[in-house]
Design a protein around this nucleic acid. Structure first.
Length: 281
DNA sequence: AATGCAAACAACCGCGCGCGC
DNA sequence: CGCGCGCGCGGTTGTTTGCAT
């Protein structure tokens, strides 16, 4: 897997720490135009003083299209808990079953919240014999090692939008609508451009954006939700200094027929309408 | 209002694997 | 076949944010 450019790359000091919006722009624009190809050459070609590894991480975790933002839903947490019980700390495997979530995000959520939740559950079980555990949750009932294929997850995700959030007055419900970064920065021109429209299949996107599989994006689109912030802006990155506004990143995607329709297929075939600031499929 | 602490999040680091030479 | 390199993964650390005092 050698990379020709790697031998030519000049030794330079790589910047560390948080990414600035400008750096994000550079990376994002470069990958949109050229694809990532060899990661070690990306920072050189994109004019970034980062190493390839850092670029890759930034892309995969924050800039990649289709990422969800916001708190984990209870269903997602249940999936994580179940899969963690099955796979252990195989975050990438767990992430594969949670479209729009990254292994890093899941890992962080596990360490900061779910781990405690599990240990608490363990304690409760120790104290009360018939202790109520998460195994009573609908998703866990459905998810067993026998039926834990991607298909079964897609069915589970169907119930995401239906879950009664008021039943779970938890921190994670503060912002229970996952956001889709895709439309936040990908302009309509880019939608209508060669990457998507001329292909008739998703393969070019796969190569350009580094998706693992089509099912992943399909899943994302199938339960994507609008992602406006209250103030009319869109969240971006860690929200600290990376807020962007709708005048920069025009129309949002809105999948009216979220779960049962052909949102994704229509999108890929170009059969969508633009109405005001929202793109309907 | 200032300070301290904990939680949440972002990013770095090290290691192992696979591929090309 | 061995070596070097890039990539992906998981663990860990650093930074920021929110809340309590």
């Amino acid at each position: 897997m050698g990379c020709k450019l790697a031998a030519e790359k000049p030794k330079q000091k790589h910047k560390k720490g948080l990414w600035s919006p400008d750096e994000d722009d550079r990376l994002k624009n470069y990958i949109i135009k050229h694809g990532h190809g060899c990661w070690s050459s990306v920072p050189i070609n994109a004019g970034l003083q980062r190493n390839g590894k850092s670029c890759r991480l930034r892309w995969i975790n924050y800039l990649r299209p289709g990422l969800k933002r916001g708190a984990f839903s209870l269903e997602e947490e249940d999936i994580i808990l179940t899969l963690h019980a099955m796979f252990g700390n195989k975050w990438s495997q767990i992430a594969q079953q949670l479209p729009g979530r990254t292994d890093n995000e899941i890992k962080n959520h596990w360490h900061s919240y779910l781990k405690k939740r599990v240990s608490k559950m363990g304690e409760n079980e120790g104290h009360t014999k018939s202790g109520k555990t998460d195994s009573s949750s609908p998703s866990l009932k459905k998810l067993t090692p026998q039926n834990s294929s991607l298909d079964s997850f897609e069915h589970m995700e169907g119930s995401l939008a239906d879950s009664d959030q008021s039943v779970y007055p938890r921190e994670t419900q503060k912002s229970n609508l996952p956001k889709v970064l895709f439309a936040e920065w990908l302009s309509l021109d880019q939608f209508n451009g060669q990457d998507f429209q001329n292909s008739g299949s998703f393969e070019p996107c796969k190569s350009n954006f580094g998706y693992n599989n089509n099912a992943e994006l399909h899943g994302i689109f199938m339960h994507s939700l609008p992602m406006n912030n209250d103030d009319g802006s869109s969240s971006y990155g860690n929200g600290v200094n990376q807020e962007v506004h709708n005048d920069i990143f025009p129309p949002q995607l809105k999948f009216e027929d979220t779960l049962s329709g052909n949102g994704f297929e229509d999108f890929m075939s170009g059969e969508f309408n633009i109405n005001d600031d929202v793109m309907y499929i």
